[in-house]
Design a protein around this nucleic acid. Structure first.
Length: 522
RNA sequence: GCGCCUGUGGCUCAAUUGGAUAGAGCAUCAGACUUCGGAUCUGAGGGUUAGAGGUUCGAGUCCUCUCAGGCGUACCA
């Protein structure tokens, strides 16, 4: 129909001509013009079966690695070292990790970057307090939140301490050895907390991926001077600014007092990522509220040539996490919810959800509950359009019904159960027996297309949506087309086993990209 | 004030980027079973896609305006 305008012909006529000249050679069984000029194609059963067999016998399920892989930097998680990770870091961490896994699977060279906040005035106060606590420091750092509060209280109550804190800020920045040692120790402990969370969350972030804010300290002055050379710098109220055409608010790169800001750091990071790391795509998985900031920084980076024209810069924005009543997610007394506590609660709740129906040994229960609980938290987050706000609901995410990780994991376990019962070797081929099997097979073949689209749009919910459709379809197939029951012909049995196996593999691969594990028994 | 985002059955979300009769899940109601794991499956009711115009063969999707809500708005990150 798109051709109709260009050719100035009746769309139905064009469609008819196309259909008549189509080479159906084995792939397509039938082609038909429908409605105002749509062309409906029916895939050939034999071709579909053969493609599924190819996928079934291939480690990558028939999905080829990109012929033209690119270097992609994915910036995600980015916790602040002054505080413990809280729910605000959850979405960035989960979505960023999924995007990284996905691009990696498709063949791109992914460079994960954890841009942790390890620099700024708070650290003067924190290390001064750490020093004061002496050997006990490490111990009281178990609860960073409390440590921060105590340090702040000390800062507010004691002028001498406050002076020292301010003095220490300057000292770290000027490279004072003693203060730097304290600072490094503090960061090390705080980062250890994050790693505990990453471990629990089953996220692929390691210390090697950390490229902290402080890493760019040395380049900040150069960013400003380069902007100056490019003639983009304007002084306003004593601050060094870039005024972009059409924007009311400037990008401030240097404060009146000479200090740098996060726009400066981001520009330095963009330069590093594009020119040193050589990234062709740089994705920032950050809260939607920072949209304005990234828009400006990206523009400056391109206009100054910090980042070459052909590098794709994108802000992978996501909405805020809300509670069941639609308000921002907080503890009962209005504080922020620590991520570690949330994850522990997920495991406890998962335990309750699964023990209601089955008997587990203590060990089984522990390990399955971890997989189920963490999977539920991740899946629920990834399953919705990332740009809208996300309503966090324990009951919904831990349900066996609907588009949940448990439903997928259940389907997977159920298929494994078929194979336990079967016990033999599959010998045979796929033969499409009815319309439902045809639909299932076609659905299985669509996996690659879905992944490609999810990668391009950085939209994990494309994957969850697909998995849900696939599993629903499989359940229907399974209900109607018996596999191991009496009276099923050997040939049919083998064919259905192959379809079931490929379904299981597809579920597993899909969940794996989402960072979610499966279990053989649930 | 200016800017960005959102608005889809009672609730939570989809909709292949402008395509066919807007789809699921909860919840409600009604069915299927001597269960290859019923933690399943089948079906029903429920919609003027916030509202009004416009663009065209065709609009939830694009444009304009209105309404409602959220967020951002120069030296925090």
């Amino acid at each position: 129909m798109a051709l109709a305008k260009a050719l100035k012909q009746n769309p139905r006529q064009i469609a008819q001509t196309i259909v008549e000249n189509l080479d159906l050679s084995g792939v397509i069984a039938k082609a038909e013009v429908a409605g105002p000029g749509f062309i409906n194609l029916w895939l050939n059963d034999a071709w579909v079966a053969q493609q599924c067999e190819h996928a079934e016998h291939d480690e990558r399920l028939g999905i080829v690695k990109k012929a033209d892989p690119v270097k992609v930097v994915v910036d995600y998680s980015g916790p602040n070292m002054a505080k413990q990770m809280h729910v605000g870091h959850l979405r960035s961490t989960i979505i960023g990790d999924t995007l990284s896994n996905l691009l990696e699977f498709l063949g791109d060279e992914v460079i994960r970057q954890n841009h942790i906040g390890d620099w700024g005035t708070q650290f003067g106060m924190l290390i001064a307090y750490l020093e004061e606590m002496g050997e006990d420091g490490s111990g009281s750092l178990k609860d960073l939140e409390q440590f921060y509060k105590d340090a702040k209280a000390r800062f507010d109550a004691d002028a001498a301490f406050a002076d020292k804190a301010r003095e220490y800020v300057v000292k770290i920045q000027s490279g004072d050895a003693h203060c730097l040692t304290l600072w490094k120790r503090f960061i090390d402990i705080s980062l250890g907390h994050c790693e505990e969370v990453y471990e629990k969350l089953d996220v692929n972030l390691t210390r090697d991926d950390v490229r902290a804010e402080s890493f760019y300290n040395e380049s900040l002055a150069k960013v400003v001077s380069d902007l100056d050379k490019a003639g983009l710098l304007t002084e306003s109220d004593g601050a060094q600014c870039v005024f972009l055409e059409g924007d009311e608010i400037p990008v401030i790169v240097q404060k009146r007092d000479g200090g740098y800001l996060y726009a400066t750091t981001d520009l330095a990071a963009l330069y590093y990522r594009a020119n040193v790391l050589g990234a062709k795509r740089i994705s920032y998985v950050v809260d939607a509220r920072q949209g304005g900031h990234f828009k400006q920084v990206f523009r400056v980076a391109k206009e100054t040539g910090f980042v070459p024209e052909d590098v794709r810069l994108e802000h992978i924005a996501f909405g805020t996490m809300m509670d069941k009543s639609g308000k921002p997610f907080k503890t009962r007394d209005g504080g922020t919810v620590k991520l570690i506590d949330l994850l522990d609660e997920a495991v406890v709740r998962a335990k309750e959800a699964i023990t209601a129906k089955d008997d587990y040994s203590q060990e089984e229960l522990e390990s399955v509950a971890k997989i189920v609980g963490i999977g539920a938290v991740k899946y629920a987050d990834l399953a919705i359009n990332r740009e809208s706000n996300y309503i966090f609901d324990w009951d919904k995410m831990l349900s066996f019904e609907g588009n949940t990780s448990l439903y997928m994991q259940y389907a997977y376990a159920r298929i494994q159960s078929i194979f336990r019962k079967f016990g033999g070797e599959i010998e045979g081929e796929i033969i499409i027996g009815d319309a439902l099997e045809h639909r299932l097979a076609v659905m299985l073949l669509r996996f690659e297309e879905v992944l490609l689209r999810a990668a391009d749009e950085a939209a994990p919910n494309q994957i969850t949506g697909y998995l849900y459709d696939l599993v629903t379809l499989f359940m229907r197939f399974y209900e109607r087309n018996p596999i191991l029951k009496e009276g099923v012909e050997e040939q049919t049995k083998m064919s259905r086993l192959l379809l079931a196996d490929l379904t299981a593999k597809t579920i597993k691969q899909g969940l794996d990209i989402l960072g979610i594990q499966v279990v053989d028994k649930l």
